[in-house]
Amino acid sequence: MKKIRVLIAKPGLDGHDRGAKVIARALRDAGMEVIYTGLRQTPEMVAEAALQEDVDAIGLSILSGAHLALTPRVLALMRANGQGDVPVFVGGIIPADDAEALRGLGVAAVFGPGTPMSAVVDAVARATARPADA
């Protein structure tokens, strides 16, 4: 039996991880295994954790405004590691234009403040569904 494994990471310098922890709990309650890495991760640390943990999806929580700098770096490192097919989600305070830009870079979905937990869980579940699960 293969469980869905999700990395929840906080790249960048902001110190607010309540949102990330709430998401981690919601995914756990949906039966997923959530690897939580803590605050102040570099993109290199995020990509390395994703590689070692062989995760099925990644959630980046970014409240610092640095999403356009950090996210492309994480995506590039993951491609270099052979994990370009792993869906990456971004949560945080992201202006609409930036969200569009992130989706253009290959981010699976962007979740702003007030997104219902069920929407987050559904999106991760759909993105990680394998043909065998259908």
């Binding site: 709990r25 309650d29 959530v34 939580y36 803590g38 954790a49």
Partner: peptide
């Protein structure tokens, strides 16, 4: 739920890289 939060990496950040 059968799910889990795995948080041990938080204390092992000094080993990154």
């Amino acid at each position: 739920s059968g799910g889990a939060i795995l948080g041990d990496r938080v204390r092992m950040q000094a080993l990154a890289g």
